[in-house]
Simulated assay, not measured.
Amino acid sequence: MPRVPRIPSELAFLPFSGSRAVAAGLVTWRMLRGSSWHRLLPDIYVHVDGYRENDHRMWCDAVALTVPAGAAISGLSAAFLWGVDLLPRASPVFVTLPGAARRRSTRRVSVDQRSLSAPEITRFAGLPVTTGVRTAFDLGRQLPRAAALVAVDALLHRRVVKLPALSSHLEAHGRWPGTAQLREVLALAEPLSESPMETRLRLVLHDAGLPPLAAQHDVYGTHAQRGRVFLGRVDLAYPRWRVAIEYEGDHHRERTHFQRDVARLNALREAGWLVLRFTVDDVLRHPARIVRLVTGAIHERRN
Rank of each mutant, 00 (worst) to 15 (best):
P5I: 15
I7W: 03
E10V: 15
L11A: 04
L14T: 12
G18Y: 00
A21S: 13
V22H: 02
V27G: 00
M31W: 05
L32C: 06
H38Q: 13
R39S: 02
L41I: 11
L41Y: 08
D43W: 09
D43F: 10
Y45G: 00
D49L: 14
R52V: 09
R52Q: 12
H56D: 05
R57C: 02
R57N: 04
W59T: 04
V63G: 01
V63A: 03
V63E: 00
A64K: 04
A64V: 07
L65G: 03
L65V: 09
T66M: 09
V67K: 02
P68N: 12
A69D: 13
A72D: 02
G75A: 14
F80Y: 15
F80V: 06
L81C: 09
V84G: 01
L86M: 11
P92E: 09
G99V: 14
R102H: 12
S105N: 07
T106I: 15
V109Q: 01
S110N: 10
V111C: 03
D112W: 10
I121S: 02
A125C: 11
P128M: 08
G132Y: 06
V133A: 11
R134C: 02
T135L: 05
T135M: 05
A136F: 10
D138K: 09
D138I: 14
D138G: 07
L143P: 01
P144I: 09
A146L: 05
D153A: 08
A154H: 03
R159H: 13
K162C: 11
K162P: 00
L163E: 11
L163W: 04
P164V: 15
A165H: 10
H169R: 14
L170Y: 04
W176M: 14
P177Q: 14
L182F: 06
L186G: 02
L186H: 05
A187V: 07
E190V: 13
S195I: 11
P196S: 09
M197A: 03
R202E: 00
L203Y: 01
V204I: 10
G209V: 01
L210H: 02
L210F: 06
P212E: 11
Y220K: 08
G221E: 06
G221H: 09
L231A: 05
A237D: 01
P239W: 07
R240A: 15
W241C: 01
A244R: 02
I245M: 01
Y247P: 01
D250W: 09
H251S: 07
H252L: 06
R253I: 06
T256K: 10
F258H: 12
Q259E: 13
D261G: 13
D261Y: 07
D261E: 08
R264E: 04
R264P: 01
R264F: 11
N266R: 15
N266G: 15
R269W: 12
E270G: 11
W273L: 04
L276N: 03
L276A: 07
T279S: 13
D282R: 08
V283W: 01
P287L: 06
R289H: 07
L293D: 02
V294P: 00
T295N: 03
G296C: 05
A297G: 05
E300V: 15
